[in-house]
Design a protein around this nucleic acid. Structure first.
Lengths: 159, 159
DNA sequence: ATTTCTGCAAACGATTTGCACAGGG
DNA sequence: CCCTGTGCAAATCGTTTGCAGAAAT
């Protein structure tokens, strides 16, 4: 976890009049130790490896705080649970390609799509707050070779 | 409900070896009587006005069938429940702008975004199956005039 | 001392499912 | 007749919440 991120988090906590607790510290430390997205359960496990007293409820109560701070991004990837992305400030990535064959999730950026979306939103009389693009796709390699290189991950979700 | 749609539905039902029941008929009739998207609960109500014996379970069991037929589109609008769009064949609309002020949902099409998304997906080695764009936004009019013309709908969801 | 935080366990809400019966083919 | 479809009620599962005690300020 970068010192700059840590500083901004605790700045936010203090500014919001929130208290500093060992559980929050553990959750924060865990939340920003990832290089990729994760879900609440995974975060709970990792936070507990720092402070075993952390409960699921506190994770669920802390997550919205971090999201509100702007340092953690909540991702709706179309699964039944939410995902969280800690590297959002460095690389604001809104766009996800979800492989239906191996459940892999690729993130990509595209300035052109971004611009187009802003234009459309404005034209409709709105100011964009949150934009997301989700592409569900099949793996070309799987179709060609018969195996998906990354299928190790998990079996595909809903066919 | 257009005759052409009805034909295609029952064609699909027969081709799939499914049976024709009064409950399914009622749900189908209801499902394609809408001009806009709706959720499972709303559909249940309308189906029951045709056949009061329709149960929630049957609605939930029928919905995936209709989606699989390709005549009904399932929409993940980022709320906790799914929505369904019956006019998908006529106007394949993937893109939604969700007003955070009044919960209104606007649908729009953009050929350019579509093309860009296809290119990106191909470049990454995939074939797109399902693409969706979701823009959450604030109403400019509300900001300017102080009131959102459409606020009648419902109070905004999560602030 | 006062207020926020916490863990626990129960509650939630949309959706799914096991079961025994009803009803299509 | 046989097998699919149905209603009912209970189960699921991620997330939220009420409560009483614990800890931060």
């Amino acid at each position: 976890m970068e010192a700059a991120v840590r500083d901004r988090i605790y700045e936010f906590i203090q500014a919001s009049g929130l208290r500093r607790t060992t559980q929050r510290d553990a959750i924060i430390e865990a939340a920003f130790s990832y290089t990729d997205h994760y879900n609440a359960d995974e975060l709970l496990l990792r936070a507990r490896s720092i402070d075993p007293s952390v409960s699921r409820a506190t994770v669920y109560r802390t997550l919205p705080l971090l999201v509100e701070s702007g340092l953690l991004k909540e991702l709706d990837l179309g699964k039944e649970q939410m995902f969280y992305d800690p590297n959002y400030i460095d690389h604001p990535r809104h766009s996800h390609l979800i492989c239906l064959d191996c459940n892999r999730i690729l993130e990509f950026e595209d300035r052109n799509i971004d611009t187009l979306e802003n234009c459309i939103t404005k034209r409709l009389g709105f100011s964009p707050v949150n934009k997301s693009t989700r592409i569900e796709a099949n793996c070309d390699e799987l179709k060609r070779v018969g195996v998906c290189q990354h299928q190790a991950g998990q079996p595909a979700a809903r066919s």
